[in-house]
Amino acid sequence: MQSFQRFDKSTTLLIALLVVAFLLATFDVRSAGGGIGTTMREGAQTLFSPLQEVAAAVTRPVVGFIDALSDIASLREENDALRLENEELKTEVEQFASIQADLEHLMEINSLEAPEDLPTVTARIVSSGASTLDLVRFIDKGSNDGISVGDAVIDQRGLIGRVDDVFRNSARVRLIFDPNVTISVQDEVTSQTGLLTGDNDTLILRIFNAEEPVREGNVIVTAGSRFPPGIVVGTVKETAADDAGFGLDAEVVAAMNPTRLDYVKVIVGYSPLDAADDETEEPVTDELVEEPTEDTVGEADGNADGADSSGEEAP
């Protein structure tokens, strides 16, 4: 009887609320972006979007000012680094012309379209996740504008992330920094393909059976399974080689800057099945056998928009 009295009203309510929250979390994870969770999110987004837009507009100058303040401290260091980088880039530009010619030639052969040719929808970022653990952004365009789950989101710098939940007039974009996001990528210089996984602040490139090292400054682009091929994702931070024969891990500096996101473009109308069709015409390579996660799961599902598996592993 005494132990029963310990559960006062607030403790009972706590337990009840925890049970409700636990059930909601379970349903949400199980439904994987559909069901009641999406309906509730859509309702909340509809209610809060106007308020968030107003708040973002009002505070934009303040946010910009604080950004500028934090930038001043790192400007000198950045200036020195840029000078050095400039010298290196001059050398690379000379090499780039021939690489670009090769790339264009390859694209012609494979009848691949450049990302620029795909239809896009321009959207504005209206809000972000609740904390820095929540690597998502919400945009002001949704299914009414043709956006669907799995669409790639880019800005002028490169790939930002993928649409992982769509509402009528808004959508949620999961950033490439999210550890749950894995992208099939290619080293533009060595043409080796691998998987790129988010690591909160940075990106980790993993290449199995790497035949040659990836060098600092090599540009990493999407390999064209879930996302259209050729979208810049980032550059290799430090040269890395597969010394032990277990694969190669390299840190990649993202091309996009999460603190500088404002307007973005959503690539619509690209289906991973397009890439799958292209791949069936080509002989199967070692990379395709080694990296089935990106290339085969969506096909097996018959899931054109990659709702469940586009670049993400299910929890």
């Binding site: 929250a21 636990f22 059930l23 909601l24 979390a25 949400d28 509730m40 909340a44 609740a130 998502v136």
Partner: peptide
């Protein structure tokens, strides 16, 4: 509300 407007599964911030 944070769960609904964020990217984590519903109920995590609530708990």
């Amino acid at each position: 509300l944070l769960d609904l407007l964020g990217g984590a599964p519903l109920g995590l911030w609530a708990m």
